[in-house]
Simulated assay, not measured.
Amino acid sequence: MATRVFADDELERLRGFPEINKEELSRFFTLTPADLGFIDPGRGRSPKDRIGPAVQLCTLPWLGFVPEDVTSAPPAAVARLSERLRIPVGEKQTRTDHLREVTGYLNWKSAKAMQLKELGEFLLARAMEHDSPSLLFRLACEHLAASRVVRPGVVMCWSGWPPRGRKRAGRPTSGCGTCWRPS
Rank of each mutant, 00 (worst) to 15 (best):
M1G: 06
M1F: 00
A2I: 02
R4V: 01
A7W: 07
A7T: 12
D8M: 08
D9K: 09
E12F: 07
R13A: 15
P18Y: 15
N21H: 02
E24A: 14
L25T: 12
S26F: 10
S26P: 04
T30L: 05
A34R: 11
D35L: 10
I39M: 04
D40I: 11
G42I: 09
G44R: 07
S46A: 15
R50D: 03
R50E: 00
G52R: 01
G52N: 02
P53M: 06
V55Q: 04
L57N: 02
P61A: 03
F65I: 03
V66H: 03
E68P: 01
V70L: 01
L81K: 05
S82G: 12
L85K: 03
I87P: 01
G90W: 03
T94V: 15
G104W: 11
N107M: 09
M114C: 12
L116E: 10
E118L: 13
L119S: 03
L123G: 02
L124F: 07
A125V: 13
S134W: 09
L136S: 01
C141A: 13
E142D: 15
S147F: 09
R148Q: 14
R148A: 09
V150Y: 05
P152M: 06
V155E: 02
V155Y: 00
V155D: 00
M156K: 15
G160Q: 01
P162T: 05
P162E: 04
R164L: 12
T173Y: 02
S174M: 06
C176Q: 01
W180I: 00
W180N: 04
